[in-house]
Amino acid sequence: MSDIFHTVYQHLLFSEEDFHAISAAHEKTEIAKGNFLLKSGEISNEYYLLEKGIVRSFVHDYNNNEITTEFFAENDIVIVPSSLFQRIPSQETLQTVTDCVLWKIDFDKFQHLFHSVPGFSEWGRSWFTTQVFSLKQKSLDIVTETATNRYLKLLKEKPQIIQNAPLKQIASFLGITDTSLSRIRKDILKI
Rank of each mutant, 00 (worst) to 15 (best):
M1S: 10
H6T: 06
T7K: 15
Y9A: 03
L12Y: 04
L13C: 02
F14E: 06
S15R: 05
E16K: 07
D18Y: 01
A21V: 08
A21H: 10
A21F: 08
S23K: 06
A24N: 15
A25K: 12
A25Q: 03
H26S: 05
E27S: 11
I31F: 00
N35Q: 14
L37Q: 05
L38T: 07
K39G: 03
S40P: 00
S40Y: 02
N45V: 05
N45W: 04
N45M: 09
I54P: 01
V55H: 05
V55L: 04
R56D: 00
R56M: 08
F58T: 04
F58Q: 12
V59N: 07
N64I: 01
E66V: 09
E66M: 00
T68E: 01
T69A: 05
E70C: 09
F72D: 02
A73F: 13
E74F: 00
I77V: 15
V78G: 04
I79L: 14
P81C: 10
S82K: 12
R87M: 10
S90Y: 08
T93R: 05
T93D: 05
V97C: 12
V97R: 07
T98L: 08
T98Y: 04
T98P: 10
D99L: 11
L102F: 10
K104W: 00
K104F: 02
F107S: 09
D108S: 13
D108R: 09
H112M: 07
L113M: 08
H115K: 15
V117W: 03
V117A: 01
V117Q: 12
S121Q: 15
W123P: 04
G124C: 11
R125M: 05
S126Q: 10
Q131F: 07
V132L: 15
F133R: 13
L135W: 08
L135E: 11
L135M: 14
S139Y: 13
L140V: 12
I142Y: 11
T144L: 14
T144E: 11
E145H: 10
N149I: 08
Y151N: 06
L152T: 08
K153T: 11
L155R: 13
L155Y: 13
E157I: 04
P159N: 06
Q160W: 01
I161V: 14
I161F: 00
I161D: 03
N164F: 05
A165F: 06
P166M: 00
L167E: 10
L167I: 12
K168D: 11
I170Q: 12
A171V: 08
S172Y: 12
F173C: 03
F173N: 15
F173P: 00
L174T: 11
L181E: 06
K186P: 04
D187K: 15
L189V: 10
I191S: 15
